[in-house]
Amino acid sequence: MVFLKRQLPLLICFIIGTISAVQYYVPTHLSSDVAEGLSNWYIIVAMFASLLGFVSVGMVHSKKIQRKEPGWAYSALVFLGIALMVVLGFWSGGKETYDDGRISPFGWLYNATLVPLQSTMFAILGFYVASAAFRSFRAKSFDAGVLLVTALIVLLGNVPFTNYIWATGLGIHDIAGVKFEMTDIVGWLIGTPNAAARRGVTFGVALGAIATSLKIIFGIERAYLGGGD
C-alpha cells in the first residue's frame, strides 16, 4: 500500500520528469513524439478528471438546495443552465452553426448569454484599474512619488494630443542632436527600467521553477502527494 501511495508515484514522477527534461535537449522526432505522447496522456487524464469537477459542482449546489441555504435559487439556476445547454446541444447536433450558415439554438444560447456575460466581466476591469491606480498613485512616500510621476509620463505619452503639444506647441524635437520626443521618453521608460525590472523577476522565476522541478523530480518535495512523508 505504501508502495502504491508513495514509492510508485515518486518513481513515475522521476521517470517522466527526467524524460521531459532530457527531451528539451534532444531535437529528434522520437523526442518530439514522446513529448506529444505525454501531452496526450495528460489530456486524457484531464478529461477523466473533468468528471470529478462535474461531480463536485453537483454536490456543492445540490447540498445548498437541500439545506435551503441563502441564495439556493442560484444553485437551482446552475442545474437549469446545465440541463438547458445539454438538451440544446443534443438538439443542435453539437453544432453552433448549421451547414447552411444558420446559427443553432445551442450556438444562440452561447452567443447570447455566455459571451455577453464574459465581456461584461472583462469590461469591469477598466473600472477596477482606475480604482487601483487611484489607490497606488497617492504620493505618500518618495517611492510612490516616483511611481506617480513615471505613470503620468507614460499615460500622457500615450495620448496623441500631448505628443502634438510637445512637438508642435513646445517645439521640442531633439536635444543636442538626439531625437527627444514624448514617445521616445515613454519608449525608454518601458524598454529600459521597466524591462530591466521585469527581466530580473523573470530570472528569479526561472531559477525558482527549475529548483522546484528538481525538488519534485528527485523526490525531495513530496507534499504534492498529500502532506508530509
Binding site: A132, S136, R198, V201, V205, G208, E221, A223
Partner: peptide, 27 residues
C-alpha cells in the same frame, strides 16, 4: 505569482505580495 504582467495589480490591491521566485520559496 510569477505572472509579471499581473504583479502590479496584486501589489496595488493586496497587503503583501510574493514576487516571482518568492512564490517558489514559500513552501
Amino acid at each position: 505569482t510569477d505572472a509579471d504582467h499581473q504583479l502590479p495589480f496584486f501589489v496595488t490591491a493586496c497587503d503583501y505580495t510574493l514576487i516571482g521566485e518568492e512564490l517558489y520559496a514559500a513552501g
